[in-house]
Design a protein around this nucleic acid. Structure first.
Lengths: 192, 192
DNA sequence: TCATTACTTGACTGCACAGTCAAGAACCGT
DNA sequence: ACGGTTCTTGACTGTGCAGTCAAGTAATGA
């Protein structure tokens, strides 16, 4: 089922492997990780049999591109947040950015939704994002800015929910989507 | 395209029409309005051709059952809310009940999501629910209990969002779903 | 340059569903 | 009990995707 990996690929095979990877990056970035492999093959200019032969199917292909698709995006947000001092601002900025990222990048969204729970790299990105959120939550709660009864699990669910929504938002405006984030964040604060 | 309607149906036709209606009620209630007509036909014990012949396809069938599927459920909630005095309680109870209804009844959810914008009866139910919400919102805002910047459109979107989520919640517990409703409602209140 | 092996192709199966229609079955009034 | 009409059937077409594989093609190294 998984990809063959002789030390040296034949020249045409290497060319195709790279072309497929590039096509997958383009296509998955815009339309998400569930896009048909036929589409990827068309964009890469190969037949889909080649994708199956080289990558062993969708899981293998995703494993081969997911780091490029997701790694930087989440890292940027974390870096961004690290520059803030106030725990509440850190918490809210992080969530807001992740939620917007889910809207802007279907592929990242699919990862955060755990669309492919079998994929190690995907799962790793998802956990990283989730655990960072939980750290920010703890700090914000310690500072008394966020509801005490909010749990790490809740947070994961809130991210999951946004993902499901972002996915369905196809033709909805980003502004409208973002507007609602404010309401949700407001609901997580402590106090009345 | 639409259903034939001679004054008197033949006996077998009447029997089948009723059987199909009953099957559609059962099946749609549990699995939503997008369930395949093949499934409805199987449950009704007829061939799907009969459904097309009698109801003219999914839209016609839905029009024939949507009132029974939805009418009472929303009416009950409205009646329930009418018995409350406090504007905030009315507002929050209503939203919470509608949101739970969306979880419990896929068919109602599909209606509130405007899955079939062509269907008059469906659209009517949807608007009724939405307009009642807007009235409660206005009252609660007048009493100063709910954020001033919340609009009727926001409210519709919030219901839509829950619908999308409820739909994806297949194997998630109702408790977990309900727990999050509390956070959202909290975010709609005025004050800090 | 040629045999060997790696690689690619596209046609194939399989699945699930929408929607259609000619042929046959069931009903109803006389 | 039969003719005319209504109704039902199920096989058919069409769509779109997953995944497979025998046969053909192209790189490689001796």
């Amino acid at each position: 089922m998984s990809a063959p990996s002789p030390q040296r690929l034949r020249a045409d095979a290497r060319r195709n492997r790279d072309g497929i990877r590039r096509a997958a990056l383009d296509v998955f970035r815009v339309r998400g990780l569930a896009t048909s492999l036929e589409e990827v093959a068309r964009v890469a200019g190969v037949s889909k049999g080649t994708i199956y032969h080289r990558f062993g199917g969708r899981p293998g292909l995703i494993d081969a591109v997911v780091d490029d698709l997701v790694g930087d995006r989440i890292a940027e947000i974390i870096a961004d947040v690290e520059s803030l001092a106030d725990p509440l601002a850190r918490f809210e900025t992080y969530l807001r950015q992740i939620w917007l990222l889910q809207f802007d990048e279907p592929a990242v969204n699919d990862v955060l939704l755990q669309l492919m729970p079998e994929s190690r790299p995907s799962t790793a990105h998802c956990e990283q994002a989730s655990q960072f959120a939980q750290r920010l939550l703890a700090d914000a709660q310690a500072a008394g800015s966020v509801r005490d009864d909010l749990t790490g699990e809740d947070l994961y669910q809130l991210i999951w929910e946004r993902g499901i929504i972002a996915r369905a938002c196809d033709q909805q405006s980003r502004d409208s989507y973002e507007r609602r984030l404010g309401f949700v964040l407001h609901g997580l604060r402590s106090g009345v």
